[in-house]
């Protein structure tokens, strides 16, 4: 070692981190690593964007409402409700009620005298489709709100679609409660 070098090393002895050799790290990357890096980062960003758990931006609704919509909604509902309450139902009208009773009596008498024609009447009714009867009842408010609420229509319709999709999962979960843990993974 030359005297010059020895002197230099002596300097590093007093301050070892000044040695430029130390600035060189021992790590290596495979050839071409940096060439594909930006593409891989972009792919990772895309993957994260489509990850519902991490991309909270997706939670924001894209839907908007007209300015002041919620300020006026309540009064619109109240106005509509008042309007509905004003409408006197058919059976509440005194004259209509009597007409209805009279019509019922006529029907009963007709029915009594035409029992032999019963088969023909049934045929007539069966020619009316269920859809038409439902539409008629709906338009005449024949189905009470209470009844509509309890129809459970939503369940029957949805469950039909649903059964195919979920039956396997449900059966497995019912018989293996410990699998609950796996599903919790998807709990966002």
């Amino acid at each position: 070692m030359s005297i010059k070098q020895k002197m230099k090393n002596k300097d590093y002895d007093s301050n070892p981190l000044d040695n430029p050799q130390l600035k060189k790290h021992p790590f290596q990357v495979e050839a071409g690593y940096f060439n594909g890096l930006s593409e891989r980062i972009m792919n990772a960003i895309d993957a994260e964007e489509s990850d519902l758990k991490f991309n909270l931006h997706l939670k924001k609704s894209p839907f908007t409402v007209p300015d002041g919509y919620f300020d006026n909604l309540s009064s619109k509902i109240e106005a509509k409700l008042r309007e509905e309450q004003k409408e006197v139902k058919f059976y509440q009208r005194p004259l209509s009620r009597w007409l209805a009773v009279a019509a019922s009596l006529v029907l009963l008498i007709t029915f009594y005298f035409n029992q032999s024609d019963q088969a023909a009447s049934t045929d007539l009714l069966s020619s009316v489709s269920d859809e038409t009867i439902i539409s008629f009842l709906e338009s005449e408010n024949g189905l009470s709100d209470e009844l509509l609420l309890n129809l459970g229509e939503i369940d029957s319709v949805l469950d039909a679609i649903y059964a195919d999709e979920t039956s396997i999962f449900v059966n497995i979960m019912d018989s293996n409660p410990e699998l609950e843990y796996d599903f919790e993974y998807f709990d966002y």
Binding site: L52, D155, Y162, F169, V170, D174, F183
Partner: peptide
């Protein structure tokens, strides 16, 4: 919805899978 919790979890799991695939 009047549906069991287990069925709802299964349903959500399926929905998430399909949505993530689409995204």
């Amino acid at each position: 919805t009047g549906t069991s919790v287990g069925a709802l979890k299964a349903s959500y799991h399926l929905a998430v899978k399909k949505v993530e695939e689409s995204l």
